[in-house]
């Protein structure tokens, strides 16, 4: 246990070097302690996100176990016709878009850590744009489903020789599809809001190598959104 800790009772937040940091909260001894604590809190929050989505993943798994054939038939409708073969075009593109946005995010964090303020803003804006592309593609996908009546529960109105209305399993598949991608989409939307807030602050010059906690934490959030999609993608678009 450290014995070199400074007197935490001194107000105003000075770290070991005596520099005043305006973001230092009074109940932390050092900026480093404050940063570590914020990060720990963020990780705990991310775990609650994993378990929140996890409940839906478990529900999806159990329902797929109950209606395996119906789920496979239904998931064919998430694919597009590419050169005469069904291929999950939208899903694959969206996966790549999100991966690239994760990269721009981490580059933004890196730029903030190394005092490159212009670069920080640039990478954060790029991340927002990629998130918008993701949502745009999602919108196209959703409108196809709406058009085909492939909707959850009481809204299910598919008129075709396959996926007959009233058969157990089909509406459930699309219920889970919309719940999980919808909840994920809400997280992307929240992410766009957070990133815009970061851009505003980064332009103001709030972040530097001495204080970049918000960029780092939003980065973690953004990566967990990506990580959840990494699991959503094969389960919905690639099961066979």
């Amino acid at each position: 246990m450290s014995t070199t800790l400074p007197d935490i009772h001194s107000h105003g937040g000075h770290d070991e070097h005596g520099e005043h940091n305006p973001y230092h909260q009074h109940h932390f001894a050092t900026m480093e302690q404050q940063f570590d604590t914020s990060k720990l809190g963020m990780w705990l929050f991310l775990v609650t996100e994993i378990l929140l989505f996890g409940g839906l993943f478990v529900g999806f798994g159990l329902m797929q176990h109950r209606y395996p054939q119906q789920f496979i038939e239904a998931h064919e409708h998430l694919k597009q016709d590419i050169f005469g073969r069904p291929f999950p075009l939208y899903g694959t593109i969206n996966t790549l878009v999100l991966l690239i946005s994760s990269w721009t995010m981490v580059m933004g964090v890196n730029a903030a850590q190394t005092d490159q303020k212009k670069k920080t803003v640039r990478y954060l804006v790029l991340t927002i744009l990629l998130a918008c592309v993701f949502l745009g593609i999602k919108y196209v996908e959703y409108s196809h489903k709406f058009h085909d009546g492939l909707l959850p529960g009481i809204f299910y109105a598919h008129q075709s020789e396959d996926l007959i209305k009233g058969t157990h399993g089909y509406a459930t598949f699309f219920a889970f599809y919309f719940m999980m991608t919808g909840l994920h989409g809400i997280h992307v939307l929240v992410g766009i809001g957070l990133l815009s807030w970061l851009v505003m602050r980064a332009r103001r010059g709030d972040f530097s190598s001495a204080y970049y906690t918000p960029v780092d934490l939003v980065g973690l959030y953004w990566h967990i959104v990506d990580m959840i999609w990494i699991y959503l993608f094969p389960l919905y678009y690639l099961i066979s």
Partner: peptide, 23 residues
């Protein structure tokens, strides 16, 4: 670790009541 699962369970229950999602 446990409460998020309650959250999602209750969301599923509400959706089942309102939209009959079939779970």
């Amino acid at each position: 670790l446990a409460t998020p699962v309650l959250g999602i369970t209750l969301v599923l229950l509400m959706l089942e009541r309102v939209f009959q999602i079939g779970i």
